[in-house]
Design a protein around this nucleic acid. Sequence first.
DNA 1: CGTCTCGTTGAGAGTTTTCAATGTAAGTGG
DNA 2: CCACTTACATTGAAAACTCTCAACGAGACG
Lengths: 190, 190
Amino acid sequence: MFKLLFAQIQEKVSLSEKDKEDLTFFFTFKKLRKKQFLLQEGHICKQLAFVTKGALKSYTIDEKGNEHISLLGWEGWWISDFRSFIYSEDAILSIDAIEDTELLLITRQDYEAMMFKVPVMERYFRILYQNSLATKDRRLISSNTYTAEEKYRQLIESYPQILQRIPQHLIASYMGLTPETFSRVKKKFL
Amino acid sequence: MFKLLFAQIQEKVSLSEKDKEDLTFFFTFKKLRKKQFLLQEGHICKQLAFVTKGALKSYTIDEKGNEHISLLGWEGWWISDFRSFIYSEDAILSIDAIEDTELLLITRQDYEAMMFKVPVMERYFRILYQNSLATKDRRLISSNTYTAEEKYRQLIESYPQILQRIPQHLIASYMGLTPETFSRVKKKFL
DNA sequence: CGTCTCGTTGAGAGTTTTCAATGTAAGTGG
DNA sequence: CCACTTACATTGAAAACTCTCAACGAGACG
């Protein structure tokens, strides 16, 4: 159950056996069925989630009722509304499962306690966030710079398998395109 | 010289006098004249920079020669190509001064040494990155969701003074709009 | 078997960009 | 300090891109 988590952490920092044991106490296990919510907009995001199995999406709904996906996450990803999680603000994101999903959850309090008990996690998260920042920077540039066609190419390069796993209209939303545009762009690449 | 840096850090974590003294040894002071480079694309980003005075932009140039600004930073901001800084990869970003600028610089080695010597900085950067992540998430959603007009409104809400300071075509680029579109949108708000 | 979800396709509308021209402010060298 | 050049903002018109609305078909699921 913790194998993937430890593996993920140890890509960035090393954990002693003691660290691993300590870590297990901070997390709780949770299963979500497809379409179940992990977090709803307007609620406080009480937990940070690590995906051990399945896939989720985090998204906002605009005035017109359109869904805008900010993150697609599967095994090995962390997912939450960070601002809400850290500052106990109302979440602007909703998160739900797009497959049957298994998660390891940690509360805000335990997140802080974990940093204290296993200080190397401070470093782990610093590095994790650092990398996410660089990735988001690229996404932002890409989103501001490129046409749908170029974005599609970049997506397929980054995640060649994504179309085999995630419904296409969700990917479209993640990329800031309508399903129709996505479909048309895809056609050009066949 | 370090006042702003300490103030900034102490918004998130507390520093002892000893911490402050320790910190001063890791940073070097640098002045940049307007238009001077801090970092050029393709080079390794050797330093992380804290802006004590002035303003800079980080950006990429696409195949067509268009500049795409990913960050505008002024007093109190950290700026660098993080991926390049951390992994010694070639930078995809260039950074230069849009005003005469003063910086505190820290090298990769000293950055790591600082985390070791002043452990609370690990926490500081974790929080800093965490917040930046949340901000970038919103920018990304905004970039994918809203029209130029709505983006303009959000910009003015977030940074009411920015037009008085930063040339308009740079703001346009930061927002992923052409200068012409930005000008036309602005006109509607007068 | 019927319903719901998802992907595709077409046509027209809307938004933003591109290209080009003009005016103005700012910066530079003599 | 002026003349000249360069940088920046504005505006117009046409082109390009993406979205919206609508219809249709295929597959999943109960």
